[in-house]
Design a protein around this nucleic acid. Structure first.
Lengths: 318, 318
DNA sequence: CTAGGTGCAAATAATTTGCAGAGGC
DNA sequence: GCCTCTGCAAATTATTTGCACCTAG
């Protein structure tokens, strides 16, 4: 995680190397070795080109930097500590590249690698083609390094909001449906908490958007069809079909499991430490919800005299 | 599709260029420009290095070749006419690479590109890490260019067999379950046809495996979680829960739709023209099954006096 | 006849290396 | 003091280009 932990790997400390690393980490987009050399040179004459190359090489080995190839005949580098794996759409006409993140692609790649007994250290996804602008002449807002962190935050928040919104709907509906009084109280409590989360997230979202008026109109950065977005929504859908108390609990358990995973996964990737904290906190709370629902489910079954048995609750966490 | 169609693009014919293209297309793995130059030189002295470079450049533009970068400081090339998009697992220790294909990754990438208004010409997925062999010392069969087509056929057949097998189970079970005589006949007929398909596919599979005794033990090449593999299987599962005639038809419709799509998609990619034909033929037949089921579904509803209405059948094809 | 293809050798461009000296531990 | 880092310049490597010549259409 922390790049400084990796730094000592290669040998002795050196002021010059530290300067290079420093300049590099401040970089926004993708630098070529020579770009970096010039930048370093400007602030710090007396550093040789070879040292920059050597340091770059060492940073890649140490996992601080990632080498990317846009097919221009020279390599470019990017700091790797942010989004361990983001991908590139590369326009072969204007030679600009825009980034995106896709959890779905990531997890599929993990599966494939695992199936082949391959231990992944890093993955590259590059899609070459023609960008909208080059094809139609219409200007589209570009995504440069500077904005990716904002976009990440924006999209993660959007998804979180969608999740909480449908969570709220789900629990409200479930509370209305549940006959058992105790169960109803649980659902009401959860609804209240989701509502609170929703408020927090929406506030953060508004604040974020306020920092950059164009932010909302920029294209999607984070693609994620999995767990989060549709989870509670489809749960609410199921409720509409009519279910009994027990089924409602089971659906809730499934949803919270996904929800917890979502907040955990993206919380860890947040760069903005405040945002990260919010997400990780929520992850914990969703976990607590999950446990609550599981307890409730067990209690229900026990009251029904069926005891703990066949399904769910059997693996309360993973 | 056919590379020869693209050949005239760049200008005049030239015997030398043709020689280079020829040697290149015969290549199995990933050649570097210099590798190719030497190969060409061997058979055909008097061809200059520059010409090889120029031809390679031109082949990439024309779509005959694909440039891949394994981070060795030089480019490698592969013929692109086979599998438009396959991906690489690259071992950073032994520097060997093995290929795989994943429909799921492909379709996700298509979605992302489309969402950004990006027209894709080619995509690169490279996963760097350590292969099983380098990590454990155990030797694993490698996949070289020579075997990918066989592996593709093997995996496509395996999936097809699994599909047909569960299709057979599904229809047999459905026939047993259906009360209506006419409906039963339909299911029986479909069961018979799936059984026949299954026979054909198993025969092809046996023949294929006979050509290379090690084929079965090689690792998976084609990863595909989507539509096909689990479709009928989950359909059969649903049947077990108990459904009425109408529901059985609806499930069948869903399954056939996926099945048709599967055979179509992979049929198109088959290199072996006989295998291709089988798949495409099956795709047509599955389509016919689909139409039959839809007709049957409508008839059923009409007999029940409910007429054509709300769901399914509304969009018989897409 | 002429635009484009080709060989060779020279040029370029990115990156690496040899070596003498500097600096951290 | 020793081992590693560093700057500089020279070397190496992959790829491109200039130019005179050749060849298909």
């Amino acid at each position: 995680m922390d790049p400084t932990l990796l730094r000592p790997l290669g040998g002795k400390h050196s002021a010059k190397r530290d300067r290079i690393v420093d300049v590099f980490l401040r970089q926004k987009g993708h630098v070529s070795a020579d770009d970096l050399f010039e930048q370093v040179r400007r602030q710090n004459p007396g550093i040789g080109r070879a040292t920059v190359y050597r340091t770059l090489q060492w940073m890649v080995e140490a996992g601080i930097a990632r080498k990317v190839d846009f097919g221009e005949g020279r390599s470019r580098f990017e700091p790797s500590y942010r989004h361990p794996r983001h991908f590139h759409l590369i326009c072969t006409t204007c030679h600009r590249s825009s980034e995106f993140l896709s959890s779905d692609v990531e997890s599929l790649m993990e599966e494939v690698a695992a199936a082949r007994g391959f231990t992944t250290s890093q993955s590259v996804v590059q899609i070459y083609g023609t960008c909208e602008e080059c094809r139609t002449g219409k200007t589209t807002p570009t995504i440069d390094g500077a904005t990716t962190e904002l976009l990440f935050a924006r999209d993660a928040l959007r998804m979180a909001i969608a999740t909480e919104r449908s969570g709220l709907e789900f629990y409200t509906r479930a509370a209305g449906l549940t006959k058992d009084k105790r169960g109803r109280t649980v659902f009401e409590r959860l609804a209240a908490e989701e509502g609170e989360h929703l408020g927090t997230l929406e506030k953060r979202y508004r604040e974020l958007v306020a920092t950059d008026p164009q932010l909302e109109s920029r294209p999607t950065f984070l693609f994620f069809k999995g767990a989060a977005s549709g989870l509670f929504a489809s749960g609410a859908e199921e409720l509409r079909k009519g279910v009994n108390d027990e089924q409602a609990l089971l659906i809730g358990i499934k949803c919270e499991r996904g929800s917890h995973k979502f907040f955990k996964r993206y919380g860890e990737r947040f760069e903005d430490s405040e945002g990260k904290q919010v997400f990780l906190e929520f992850a914990d709370e969703e976990r607590a919800h999950l446990d609550l629902l599981i307890r409730e489910y067990r209690a229900l079954r026990e009251r029904q005299g069926r005891g703990r048995s066949t399904r769910a609750g059997a693996r309360p966490r993973r």
